[in-house]
Structures are given as structure tokens and as C-alpha cells.
Write a protein that binds this DNA or RNA. Structure first.
Lengths: 193, 193
DNA sequence: CTAGGGTGTTACCGGTCTGTAACTTCCTGA
DNA sequence: TCAGGAAGTTACAGACCGGTAACACCCTAG
């Protein structure tokens, strides 16, 4: 009742969705399981019947977020079937949409910052998911006919990662405001080689 | 005794230095004031006699870190007096040294990620300090004779910021490994315009 | 109709957190 | 020598944390 979460789905789904949202907004260490379950319209016992610990809930949230991001890549292919260069430009455009004023950045990168214990179980998941995303962008650049595909993909990755974290420090009027211009001119430059 | 902190300075200095180190390693929310004072060889009461709250300690730590970073710029000027282009290359080299294997990234950016409350007192300090650093890099690029100085400075900023956060997700063998190459080729490209 | 599983409720455990009070000890400077 | 302030010590308050136990409920499948 009175919560903005999906009205009447299964408790597990509500918990997962609410946790994603609250972890994103308030940070992982900034929100407790009690607050999550209350916002999800359920209770702590039900959470611990579906997830064996908060750490496992964190991991499931990261996987769910990555799955959502992965679906965006399908949109690129659907909108520009076969045209990999157009898909790369679509990636830039989509990335720029992530740089809206009050963005809290990338959940995986933020989690890596928050979870400082080197052996935290979420860290290997973060690494796997981020490496998978890198592979995708490299493949896209390569299939778009760019020579140094890895270097362009890595440069674009760092620019976006930097833009998303810079936004949280200095806001949307900082260096991240120039992201699209930087990315497009980089792509043009790599294509000219 | 038996702590790695400056052996016998004043308690306030020891607390400040220890807090910087521990906030950097374990994150701000990952370390309590008790742990800091113990590692600094003192106690909680003494901390609260010198800092009115943990938040104020955080702010002082960020200022101290920024002051250390600022001193590095003096080294650039000392090593390459008047030669702003050489100083820019020195900046790139110094930046690449921040990307060692187990780096925990930029304290200010990390703090911005951790402190999600939009009205947290540290946030405006972070913004001020980051904007000052941006100004410095813009001035360096401009004085080095680069036309689009702001754009180059912002691009380099995002690359470094991205590299430092990417390291925490995927390690030093990820995209950040190419930082120097990216930065140098960007500088060359901007100089050619 | 009934059995059983998913769910809700309440209370609790042990630990940690920031911050404070009251008191003692020690060192320094006049 | 002695006064005063800085620092150390101990104890505590009040809140929150992740996680568990025991029990009541309800809804549905057989």
C-alpha cells in the first residue's frame, strides 16, 4: 500500500526491484534490509527466505541491473539492423542520456567503490559483468569497421565511466557536459585512420 | 605503539593523517571513529575535542588530500619552469602513476559516491575542490598553447576519472591500462588543430 | 474440507555506530 | 613549585545493523 513499487507481484520480485532502486539512490551501505522490505511492502523474514544474506541480495541486484542494460543493446540491433556504425552512434546517444542532472552513476562502479573488502563476493560479479560489457563494445567497434577497435572501445568506456562519476562530484555542468562531442569526434578520428 | 602512523606528532595531526589513510582504504562508511582513533594511538574523546563531528573530520580529510595534490602541481612547475607543455606531459605521467594495481581511486570522487545525501556538508566541498582542479588543468592546457583548452582539459579529466574508477571494477589490466596512450594521442591531436 | 506452503508479525540476539559525561593523568609554562 | 590545559580512560546513551526464532495466518491445490 502507498508504495511506488510494482503493486502486486511476488514478494521476491518486489524486494529485488525495490532493493535495486534504493541501492541506486542511497548506496549499498546507506540502506538496511529493514528499509528495503518495508518499502517493498513486506518484511525481513520474507527477504531472508528468498536471499540467504544481504550480500546475495546485492549480487542479484547487480545481475538484474546488468540484464536491463543488456536489453538496451537489443534495441540498438532492432533499430539499426546490421548497421553497426549506426548502433555505435546510438550507444553514444544512449550513454549521454545517462548523464542527466541528478544521476547517481553506474551501480556496478558505485558498488565497487563502496565494497572495499577485496574478497567481497560481489566484486568478482562486478568484474565479470563489466568485462562482458567491455567485450560487447569492442565487438561493436570492430564490426563497425574500426581498425583499433579495442582502443576506441576502451577510450569510450573510460570517458563514459568518468562522466558518470564526475557528475556525482561536480554535476551535469562539469566536464561530462561535453561527453557527446568528445565521443563523436573520437569515433570520427578513429574512422579516418 | 606499533602503528604505522607518524610516531609522535600532535594528536590532531595523527588523527587527520590516519583518517585520510583509512577512509581511502576502507571507505568513509566502512570505518568508524573508534577504529580511526585506535589506529592513531589516541581515543574518541580527543577526536571530538578537535573535530565537532565525523562529517567535519571527513571534510578536513578531503581538504588535506586536495592540498597534497596541489603540491604536485608545484613540482611540475619546479621541474619544467615555464615549459607548460612539458608540465602537461608530466601531468599525464603523474596521473598514470595513480593507476597502480590495487589503487582505490580518487578520494573525492569516492566520497561523492558514498555520501548520497544531496545536502551532505561534504558535497559542496567536493564540488569546490574538483572545480578548482579543473580550472588548473584548463589553465595548463591554455598556457601550453592549445586552442580548445577547455575541451582537452575536460576530456583528460574524464579519462583519468574513468580510469581510476574502472580500476576498482576490473583492475589494472582493464581499459585503464591504455590511459597514457589515449592521453598522449589526444594532446597530439589537439596540438595539430 | 483439509493439509501444507508461502507469508506476515513480533520479539529478540549480539554487534556496531556516533556522540557525550565524568573523572584521572600528565606535561608544560610561568 | 604549582596551576591549568591537553590528553587518556571508562562508561554509557540511543540508535541502527544483519540475521534468527517462534508462531499465527491465509490461500490454494488436492
Amino acid at each position: 500500500m502507498a508504495d511506488g513499487v510494482a503493486e502486486r507481484s511476488r514478494p521476491r520480485d518486489r524486494i529485488l526491484e525495490t532493493a535495486q532502486d534504493m541501492f541506486h539512490k542511497h548506496g549499498i551501505k546507506g540502506v538496511g534490509v529493514d528499509a528495503i522490505t518495508e518499502a517493498a511492502g513486506t518484511n525481513k523474514m520474507t527477504l531472508y527466505r528468498h536471499f540467504e544474506s544481504k550480500d546475495e541480495l546485492i549480487i542479484e541486484c547487480l545481475r538484474a541491473t546488468a540484464a536491463k542494460a543488456s536489453r538496451i543493446w537489443d534495441e540498438f540491433e532492432a533499430k539499426h539492423p546490421g548497421d553497426k556504425l549506426a548502433q555505435l552512434h546510438a550507444w553514444v546517444h544512449k550513454a549521454s542520456e545517462l548523464l542527466s542532472a541528478d544521476s547517481r552513476g553506474c551501480d556496478m562502479a558505485n558498488a565497487a567503490v563502496e565494497l572495499t573488502e577485496t574478497d567481497h563476493p560481489a566484486r568478482r560479479v562486478i568484474k565479470e559483468l563489466k568485462e562482458a560489457q567491455r567485450e560487447k563494445l569492442v565487438a561493436l567497434c570492430r564490426d563497425a569497421g574500426i581498425g583499433q577497435a579495442e582502443l576506441l572501445a576502451d577510450t569510450l568506456s573510460l570517458l563514459l565511466e568518468g562522466a558518470r562519476v564526475s557528475m556525482q562530484s561536480v554535476g551535469a555542468e562539469g566536464p561530462s557536459a561535453q561527453f557527446v562531442r568528445m565521443a563523436e569526434s573520437l569515433i570520427a578520428s578513429f574512422r579516418a585512420r
